[in-house]
């Protein structure tokens, strides 16, 4: 059995969708999305200093991370974390470009928080996590890449790992309106079968597979988020549905994972 075929345990899930709050609230609402005036993600577990500087994306990633960690009951100070995002802090970068070409002074904190690893850094500072965190990008295969990185970490360190994937839309000037999408961050906490944390579901993969596997019905704006397939995976877990889950909604290399639910989240 290769490492990719070994079964992992999903022991916690998290979701940050503006206007909805968390994974349980999303399930309770029957998958409907946020209110007409979506709220800014709270970033409640970030320290005050970080929260003040955090973008909506970093807040959303932090919120999803926290929900997954709390549900699993793992230690936020030692759990490893893989943050995935195709575009990173693109809106912060555009602010810097504006400052650059308008010959305004660049804000040092703006520069320091314009990188894809901003959430990784702020979460580790806020939780005092001295394990290690990382930030990965692979366009529409980011979820697959993040799960693969987590699998490698889990199988070689035997420590639980949180995978948190999210994106906020490309700045309007860079993409047409019909390609923009809504902010979303989703998380799963993974551990090994012999670990003591609750087994919500068992996971195999990612593996490449042909065939159409429809995701959760969502608005076009949310469905276009490159990280939406981690929400599809979380939906299986919280609704108690076993089966294969596509990780790219047709836009990537064709990775799927197989989920076998032990008990609904």
């Amino acid at each position: 059995m290769t490492g990719i075929e070994r079964e992992l345990i999903i022991c916690g899930v998290g979701l940050s969708l503006p206007g909805v709050g968390n994974a349980k609230a999303w399930l309770h609402r029957g998958h409907t999305e946020g209110s007409e005036s979506p709220s800014m993600p709270s970033g409640h577990s970030l320290d005050k200093h970080s929260r003040r500087r955090a973008s909506p994306l970093t807040r959303a990633l932090s919120d999803a991370f926290t929900e997954a960690v709390e549900q699993a009951g793992v230690d936020a100070k030692t759990v490893h974390a893989v943050f995935g995002s195709a575009l990173g802090e693109a809106s912060t970068m555009v602010k810097l470009l504006d400052q650059l070409w308008k010959e305004e002074d660049m804000t040092p904190m703006g520069f320091a928080t314009s990188v894809p690893s901003t959430a990784s850094g702020m979460v580790s500072i806020s939780t005092q996590n001295r394990g290690f965190t990382t930030a990965v990008c692979a366009d529409y295969d980011t979820v697959a890449g993040a799960l693969m990185e987590a699998r490698g970490i889990l199988l070689t360190t035997e420590n639980p790992v949180v995978v948190v994937c999210g994106d906020e839309t490309s700045p309007a000037r860079f993409v047409p309106d019909d390609e923009s999408f809504d902010l979303l961050a989703t998380a799963v906490c993974l551990c090994l079968p012999h670990h003591p944390w609750p087994a919500l579901a068992r996971l195999r993969g990612p593996r490449i597979a042909d065939g159409d596997l429809p995701g959760v019905p969502l608005s076009d704006r949310l469905a276009r988020n490159p990280q939406v397939c981690l929400l599809d995976l979380v939906a299986h877990v919280i609704e108690g549905r076993s089966g294969a889950v596509r990780l790219d909604r047709g836009a990537g290399a064709g990775y799927v994972v197989d989920v076998r639910v032990s008990r609904p989240a």
Binding site: G3, V115, S117, T134, C137, M148, G152, I153, L155, T156
Partner: peptide
């Protein structure tokens, strides 16, 4: 995948590769 952790970005892939091969 691409790691983007600023100045450790191209050192971390060495760790990832060790893990992927070990697993």
């Amino acid at each position: 995948w691409v790691v983007s952790t600023t100045c450790t970005s191209s050192a971390k892939p060495l760790a990832s590769a060790m893990r992927l091969i070990a697993a």
